[in-house]
Amino acid sequence: MSSNSISRLSDSILHRFCSQILPAISYKINWLKIEVSSIERILLPRNYPNLFGLGIYNIERDDDIRFLKENTFMQRFKNQISSLVIKSVDKLDTSKNVNTHLFAYIFNTLSHLRYFKFDSLLFYDQRMAFVYSPPSMFSSTLLELHVKVDSFTDCLYLLDDRFDQF
């Protein structure tokens, strides 16, 4: 993690981690930083009663965004996760506003979110654009937001009282 990224674990290491280590410590885990392809093996089979923070890394394709929206793990942890970091490593198809739709989905799903960071590891920034098709979203708990927007109008959209704890 020297470059603030997370590398994919080999199958043998991931298998050992999921079958031997996680069962013994899952109730102690407060924060997980995981690579998007490991979510199903790490998050779904276990209970994490003390989990409040989640980092999802290496989102590379629009399919990863669809996976995050269609999978049930966000619903399962919607009352637990108060801190979320999303990091993409590739330029997603911004013409479809997939970032903006995921952004809105997160706010509409995670009801206790207090800290959210959506970031890109590339030089080309993944920017949110709300002007053309603004999603409906609201949060009464969010205190800190780190996101890159496309224009000043998009910034004003976020500051129009939809996040009343800012």
Rank of each mutant, 00 (worst) to 15 (best):
residue 11 D to A: 08
residue 14 L to A: 00
residue 14 L to Q: 01
residue 16 R to C: 06
residue 17 F to T: 14
residue 17 F to N: 00
residue 17 F to K: 00
residue 18 C to P: 05
residue 20 Q to I: 06
residue 20 Q to R: 05
residue 20 Q to K: 06
residue 21 I to R: 11
residue 22 L to Q: 00
residue 22 L to C: 13
residue 23 P to F: 08
residue 23 P to K: 13
residue 24 A to S: 11
residue 26 S to F: 15
residue 26 S to E: 14
residue 26 S to Y: 04
residue 27 Y to C: 11
residue 27 Y to M: 05
residue 27 Y to A: 10
residue 28 K to L: 11
residue 30 N to M: 09
residue 30 N to S: 09
residue 31 W to N: 09
residue 34 I to R: 12
residue 34 I to W: 10
residue 34 I to Q: 10
residue 34 I to N: 01
residue 35 E to K: 10
residue 35 E to R: 01
residue 36 V to F: 09
residue 37 S to A: 08
residue 37 S to M: 06
residue 38 S to K: 03
residue 39 I to P: 03
residue 40 E to L: 04
residue 40 E to W: 02
residue 40 E to M: 00
residue 40 E to T: 11
residue 40 E to A: 03
residue 41 R to M: 12
residue 41 R to T: 12
residue 41 R to S: 12
residue 42 I to A: 10
residue 43 L to R: 03
residue 43 L to S: 00
residue 43 L to D: 00
residue 43 L to K: 05
residue 44 L to I: 14
residue 44 L to D: 13
residue 44 L to M: 07
residue 44 L to E: 13
residue 45 P to I: 01
residue 45 P to G: 09
residue 47 N to V: 00
residue 47 N to W: 04
residue 48 Y to I: 02
residue 48 Y to L: 03
residue 49 P to Q: 09
residue 49 P to M: 03
residue 50 N to P: 05
residue 50 N to Y: 11
residue 51 L to S: 03
residue 53 G to E: 06
residue 53 G to R: 04
